[in-house]
Simulated assay, not measured.
Amino acid sequence: MKYVSADEKEKANNVNLLEYLSLIGEPLKSEGNNFYRHEDHDSLVIHAKKNYFSWNSKGVSGNAVTYLMNVHDLKFQEAVKKINTDLDGKDLSAYKPPKITYPEYFKYDVKEVSTTKNAFDYLVNDRKLDPDLVQSFIKADLIKEDSYRNVVFKWKENGQLIGANLQGTREIPPKKRIDTNRPYFKKVLPTTKDATNSGFNITRGYPEKLYFFESPIDLLSYFSLNKNTLTNCRLISMDGLKQQTFAYTLKRTLKDLRSRNRKLDSIKLCVDNDEAGKEFVSKIQQYKLTRSDGKDIPIESYIPDLPPGEIKWDWNNQLKAKVNESLKKT
């Protein structure tokens, strides 16, 4: 196989995946929302907006080069050469990430239903959350259910609805999953630029302690484990590992505390025990935060302990393990 140049690699790696696969005649069918599914491999999905594919049954994902290597069994150099040959003389665009736009106002277009039975059953029986806690948040209009049986986690600030998460309650069959690592439907509703950096949050008393989580489920799991000891705190879901959410919440909380003549005591990073979570903690702990009275604000790692044999562990795993252990003793 001939040597491939750096320019050839760059061109192959950055080609618009959907346009290229259409050019070479790959059998794809649209599933809406910029997703396309391979007609011969029903677990292979193209994410046009993000310019990559996921082949769930094989556990692989990537760009056009990776696609050819896995779907057409080509070696790396062969895949790079093929893409460059296919593109020769063709006016095919390189992938450009879409410009992010934000609505001027948050539009809550969720069709809520009067019952929360499916949401409650999923959160309590599948996720093992404390039933009294779940019921209290349902009554507080922070958790609802929509017409598709999804759990709705409402984001509120000062009583105003500014955003929401949707969490599916029915497991998606492996071959139908858009993302291999997501067995349930998940969606964050589009909201304003400022509110995008917020998330599902709960405040108890004065927010003198901040707790950051990767998801609403993790937040509620930690709350279930520590509901009798959590006081004067604010817990917030980042929907991943978002430094923007950390910064936004910190700024908002400091403003709230100043208006009440209170001060921030500590920050807890309650993220997953995996490489990404540890890297996030390392980045955030590089910041040095000092109060107006000269006292440092500690940024603490509250990552759950990783049990032997596991490669990833989150606060919902921790809650389930404790509940199961309690059941064994009864």
Rank of each mutant, 00 (worst) to 15 (best):
D132W: 01
S215H: 05
K263R: 13
S301Q: 02
G168K: 01
K81F: 04
L87H: 11
E26N: 04
L254F: 04
N34I: 00
K295Q: 14
I284Y: 03
E171F: 01
K255N: 15
R291I: 03
E10Y: 12
D239Y: 11
K82P: 02
Y36M: 03
S43L: 01
K251D: 11
V80D: 10
N14V: 03
T116K: 15
I236N: 03
K49C: 05
L225S: 09
K75Y: 04
E214F: 07
K251L: 10
A48Y: 03
S43F: 02
K175F: 09
E112T: 11
K187C: 07
L219E: 01
G159T: 03
E19H: 04
D296S: 13
V271Q: 05
S224V: 02
G277F: 08
C233F: 11
L220Y: 00
K11E: 11
W55A: 01
L235E: 00
G62N: 02
S259R: 15
P216Q: 09
V323Y: 02
V281L: 07
Q135P: 03
L257D: 14
N63Y: 02
W155M: 12
R170C: 09
Y67G: 08
K111D: 10
G294A: 11
F106R: 00
K90R: 13
R182Y: 07
D146S: 03
F212M: 04
V151A: 05
S57C: 00
V110K: 05
S30A: 14
A64R: 12
S215F: 07
R170T: 14
V110N: 04
F35L: 14
L18G: 01
T116G: 07
N51T: 04
I236V: 15
R234V: 08
F106Q: 04
R291L: 10
E31H: 13
D109F: 06
T169P: 02
E208H: 04
I143H: 07
V71P: 00
N63C: 09
N324G: 09
L319C: 08
W313A: 01
L219S: 13
K227D: 00
Y20E: 02
R258S: 13
S43Q: 05
L254R: 15
K263S: 15
G205N: 08
N165D: 15
L87P: 08
L219G: 11
S224T: 05
R177I: 00
T115I: 01
V4F: 11
K81W: 11
H72D: 13
R182C: 10
G205C: 06
T116E: 09
S57H: 12
N63E: 09
K263A: 08
K90L: 08
D42H: 14
K144V: 09
K322S: 14
G277Y: 06
Y108S: 05
D272M: 13
I162Y: 14
P190D: 10
G163C: 06
N316E: 08
K81G: 03
F106V: 02
D109A: 07
M1Y: 10
N33H: 15
N13C: 10
F53Q: 06
K9L: 12
S224P: 11
N51A: 01
K82W: 13
K81T: 13
G277R: 09
F35V: 13
R37C: 06
R177N: 06
K176M: 03
D265W: 10
Y184I: 04
S22K: 14
T101W: 02
W315V: 07
K128V: 05
T101I: 10
F120I: 00
